[in-house]
């Protein structure tokens, strides 16, 4: 059997200049929030941006950006067009399933992702941001098989989060992936212990690659309105320049 979707993926991403993959391994650390802030900042500086939400069980990018999740995707000649929200093109499973739960096992998830990759018509983009689910399962494995991108890793400043994220970084390194930065999301607004971070990552990342994103009050309100929080701009610009 010949897998025709495989051949379509490279064709569909042919006009995408740069792919940034936002992941962690750990859940609840702010991957989707960081992805959206990154997208808004890139939009602000005049870049054409798309976000591919591949958190198949917990797709939240449309919700964060205030898109009406009852709207379903429509087929166009050659595939599906992403929807545009606040000047960012987004594609998410939410556009297919709405508010329904998505009880999908491994192989089904890989196939769903391959469909999303092979049928989404992005046209030309300066940046495609990919929002990963937690873990190192089918979504990540399928993505890295088909898409060459650079990685942005995010963790909380806690021992548990750093422990899980360190293993995620090790996995990316085993693939010779380029990690642009490790972002420490200080969403608890606490004093960050360098010891926790340096000990956790010392073998896998040079410490100069850590960037701390400060606590942002009402971050959800900013993103819902499509506004880049000012407090995040410095960190985001460093990621973009990395």
């Amino acid at each position: 059997m010949i897998e025709f979707k495989d051949y379509m993926i490279s064709d569909r991403l042919g006009n995408v200049c740069k792919v940034l993959i936002v992941g962690s391994g750990k859940g609840g650390v702010g991957k989707s929030t960081l992805t959206v802030i990154l997208g808004l900042r890139l939009r602000d500086i005049g870049m054409k941006v798309g976000i591919l939400d591949i958190d198949l069980h917990g797709a939240s990018i449309p919700f964060i950006l205030g898109w009406n999740t009852n709207t379903t995707v429509k087929a166009v000649r050659g595939g599906f067009k992403p929807v545009e929200v606040h000047g960012i093109k987004i594609m998410s499973l939410r556009m297919f399933v709405g508010d329904r739960p998505t009880p999908l096992r491994g192989e089904r998830k890989s196939e769903v992702l391959k469909y999303m990759l092979s049928l989404t018509i992005w046209d030309s983009l300066d940046y495609l941001l990919v929002d990963l689910p937690p873990g190192m399962s089918d979504e990540l494995l399928t993505l890295v098989k088909y898409v060459k991108g650079e990685h942005v890793v995010i963790t909380l400043p806690t021992k548990t989060s750093v422990d899980v994220t360190t293993r995620y970084v090790k996995f990316l390194k085993s693939l010779n992936s380029n990690i642009l930065a490790v972002i420490v999301n200080n969403l608890m607004n606490v004093a960050i212990s360098d010891e926790v971070l340096i000990k956790g990552f010392q073998e896998d990342m040079p410490t100069s690659n850590y960037l701390v994103i400060p606590y942002i009050h009402d971050v959800e309100e900013y993103l819902l309105k499509g506004v880049t929080p000012k407090k995040a701009v410095d960190v985001i610009d460093k990621i973009i320049r990395a």
Binding site: T72, V73, K74, A75, F80, F96, V97, R100, P101, T102, P103, L104, R105, R108, E111, V112, Y115, M116, L119
Partner: peptide, 15 residues
């Protein structure tokens, strides 16, 4: 009709 299972048959478990 155009429906999610027509687009992505693997989504049948959702419906």
């Amino acid at each position: 009709c155009d429906n999610p299972v027509h687009f992505i048959p693997d989504l049948i478990n959702v419906f």
